[in-house]
Amino acid sequence: MSRITECFNNLKSQGRKALIPFVTAGDPDPKVTVPLMHALVESGVDIIELGVPFSDPMADGPVIQLACERALLHGTRLVDVLDMVAEFRKTNQTTPVVLMGYLNPIEVMGYAAFADKAKAVGLDGVLTVDLPPEEACEFNPLMKAAGIDVIYLIAPTTEESRVKQICAAGSGYLYYVSVKGVTGSAALDVGEVAEKLEMIRQHTDMPLGVGFGIRDDASARAISAVADGVIVGSVLVNKIAELAGNQAQIPEAVAAITASMRQAMDK
């Protein structure tokens, strides 16, 4: 059983939902990332999504675009992000880590080389925004062989016939994008999300995470009532941006947000 599946199983048996923070690796400095990951775990998160900086983050709003730019100022590459995972694993063998990003850095590293390295550092999953299942016939078997879950997005625009196809291709969990738009955009409609999740559940037993548009305790709590996981990104990245000149405070300040969300979700 993968670390991700185990994590969701444990939560389920406790009647709790997963809190999944997203932060961009290397933002605002590579030295911040691993301590931040540990602080997030301390605050009660269950899985960490680590963004791989990319020069052209087409699905992201301004908040994560700027995070990518800050990380790239220090030249944070995919290989450096994998090293951060290795560093994190030295003292944490239980919290699943998922890389989220765009295909080109993986393409340039080579799929096989990426799979080897990902396995070696103890990575658990990968979510490649611009690699839909149709284009992943070479990529997926390599990830599967390396024991890495391939996590897919499902959007409000995804038709039911495609949902089946995506459920068949993915593993670990599914990431439901709650709004039409880029990361950090408009507020979400919980009723609409619940309806869509119900349809998806008819095609899979995989846990369903929901992201895009969760910005506070209330929205985290509302989504945790209908989903298996709550994914929160831009609001954390915003805090990191605020403290870019005061890096020592970042882990504690960001963890304070997730701790509060954790409480709201567990109420």
Partner: peptide, 20 residues
Amino acid sequence: ASGHFGQFGGRYVSETLMAA
């Protein structure tokens, strides 16, 4: 039929755009 020119082309986009 899948939009490829040999190894090039294809449809590498985020899920929201696939239906469109």
